[in-house]
Amino acid sequence: MLKVTNLQYQYKNAENIYSYELEVKPQEVVAILGQSGSGKSTLLDIVAGFVEPSAGSVILDEEELIGLPVEKRPITILFQNHNLFEHLSVQKNILLGVSKVLKDSIEEVEKVQAILKEVGLEEHEHKLASKLSGGQQQRVALARVLIRREPILLLDEPFTGLDEKTRLEMLDLVKKITLEHNLHTIMVTHEVEDCERIANKIYEMQDHSLVAR
């Protein structure tokens, strides 16, 4: 279980304090709705470790995540853009999710090939990421989620800008991955339809606080 308890954040030189409280079970997708600038992405930044809260905790199975550096947190995050290194191949982009050495092993490469098959991109293994369509790029990013096997998946409006058919395919893939790999998924979006399609619980940012819908 991922528990966000009494989390608070205040921007520099601002008066408002943003507060968050939620729980995410394994295999659950929790959606956070809100207008631009309402503070929903800040929650993801805190859980990921890019910013430190002023109070509160983020606990995964009794382990406190606050205080851990980003690279030590058990998360994979997808952003609105720059989810891939465009100058690298699809294979390399996925391998960088797990490999800590410069030379890749045969086992790792085989793992990548298997995962690319799972997301339907096996023939694009050696293509440059910049040559893929928007939807294909997000599939590669999701393939990296699979290879990393981290229990928390954070989605910061990664499917904005895709055509409706591709966006719905991506959402279904997120749901499938969350169920099959026991992930705790938090998805930030401003699309109500996206929430209703795949979310188990929906929260909304109202007056700088997260409230259940």
Partner: peptide, 17 residues
């Protein structure tokens, strides 16, 4: 953000990014 979240080592960061 991407590099930190993937936990890239310094050498990976320099060579690949």
């Amino acid at each position: 953000k991407l590099a930190f979240s993937l936990g890239l080592t310094k050498r990976q960061r320099w060579f690949y990014v």
